[in-house]
């Protein structure tokens, strides 16, 4: 579904991503692990057209999308839940959710709206509340709900665990799993929180200073002692 080959991205003179190659199969949940500043957000922003690639290809359903602009990529079926949620702070919860359906003109929007608030019942109670008055967990739910409204085939999640209390975190990752199994939406998520990410993923990559340094089935990554100590251990001790 998503095939990235030898992708490089530069910020000015700094190489943010170098020769990144990865695949996400249809229907899978795949994660990209790595510490802060490894280039995870850069990778997602490049996929969704917010950043320009210096070299390499990104294919979605076999179609080259490098060079397409941000607002065009959503229409192809890729929704991106950005870093730090990036909600519309002065809009209500309802308006935020409906902004997710901006590209759509079909008559199933209302039904999808109902489905989103079924996933996140708490949002249903707060439909007219202004987004920036929500708690961190509610904001993350809103950001995911908003992205679902575009009916994506591929959902990109940027650190959904960021700043969440443990119970909220479990709740959100449970929904992420359900989105994948019930809707059949392919999920590509970048995370610092290895344990949680690998628990919902079938395959994982490890990114370090812009390069992929390891990849394997999620179960193997969890069991690989070297990986655990070198890369994943960091986040364990940080928890």
């Amino acid at each position: 579904m998503l095939e990235i080959e030898r992708l490089s991205v530069r910020h000015g003179n700094i190489t943010a991503l170098a020769d990144v190659t990865l695949r996400v199969e249809p229907g899978a949940t795949v994660c990209m692990l790595g510490a802060n500043g490894a280039g995870k957000t850069t990778l997602l922003n490049t996929i969704s057209g917010l950043l320009k690639a210096a070299a390499g290809t990104i294919r979605f359903d076999g179609r080259e999308i490098v060079g397409a602009r941000g607002h065009e990529i959503v229409r192809l079926g890729i929704s991106h839940v950005p870093e730090r949620r990036d909600l519309f702070p002065d809009m209500s919860v309802r308006e935020n959710i409906m902004m997710g359906a901006y590209t759509r003109a079909d008559d199933e929007v209302d039904a999808d709206f109902d489905q989103v608030v079924t996933y996140f019942p708490i949002l249903k109670e707060r439909l007219s509340q202004i987004a920036n008055t929500l708690s961190g967990g509610e904001q993350q739910m809103l950001a995911i709900g908003r992205a679902l409204m575009a009916k994506p085939r591929l959902l990109l999640l940027d650190e959904p665990s960021l700043g969440l209390a443990p119970q909220v975190l479990d709740q959100i990752f449970e929904i992420i799993e359900r989105i994948n199994t019930e809707n059949g939406t392919t999920i590509f998520l970048v995370e610092q929180n290895t344990q949680v990410a690998l628990a919902v993923s079938s395959y994982g990559y490890v990114l370090e200073t812009g390069k992929i340094v390891a990849e394997d089935k999620a179960a193997n990554l969890l069991e690989n002692d070297l990986i655990r100590r070198s890369y994943l251990g960091i986040s364990e001790s940080a928890e």
């Binding site: 969704s48 057209g49 917010l50 941000g70 607002h71 959503v74 229409r75 929704s79 991106h80 950005p82 990036d86 909600l87 519309f88 902004m99 997710g100 901006y102 590209t103 908003r146 992205a147 575009a150």
Partner: peptide, 8 residues
Amino acid sequence: RAATLMGV
């Protein structure tokens, strides 16, 4: 950024 991601 968010508006762009919504397809605006």
